[in-house]
Simulated scan of single mutants.
Amino acid sequence: MTLPTFTYNPDPIKLEVIKKEKTDCPVCNKERDYVYKGPFYSVEDVEGICPWCIADGSAADKYEGSFQDDASCEEVEKETYIDELVYRTPGYFGWQQEHWLSHCGDFCAIVEYVGWKEIEHLEEELAGDLNEIMTTYNLPKEKLKEWLTNDGALQGYLFKCVHCNQHRLTVDSN
Rank of each mutant, 00 (worst) to 15 (best):
F6K: 02
F6C: 04
T7Y: 02
T7P: 00
D11T: 01
I13W: 05
K14D: 04
L15Y: 03
L15E: 06
E16M: 13
V17M: 05
K19N: 03
K20G: 09
K20C: 12
K22F: 07
K22Q: 12
T23Q: 13
D24A: 15
C25S: 08
N29M: 12
V35W: 01
V35S: 14
G38Q: 03
Y41G: 01
S42E: 04
D45T: 05
G48F: 00
G48L: 02
I49F: 02
P51C: 14
W52I: 12
A59W: 02
A60N: 06
K62L: 09
E64Q: 13
E64N: 13
F67Y: 11
A71N: 00
S72L: 06
C73A: 09
E75H: 05
V76S: 06
V76K: 06
E79N: 06
I82Q: 01
L85H: 01
F93N: 08
Q97L: 12
H99R: 13
W100N: 06
S102T: 08
C104S: 09
D106I: 03
A109G: 01
Y113K: 14
W116L: 11
E120A: 15
E120P: 05
H121R: 08
H121A: 13
E123H: 06
E125P: 00
L126I: 03
A127Y: 02
M134L: 14
T135A: 14
T135L: 14
N138M: 11
N138A: 13
P140C: 09
K143A: 10
L144I: 06
K145A: 07
T149I: 05
T149E: 11
N150R: 07
N150W: 00
D151H: 15
G152N: 14
A153E: 14
Y157I: 03
L158F: 04
L158A: 03
N165H: 15
H167Q: 15
T170L: 09
T170Y: 11
S173C: 15
N174A: 15
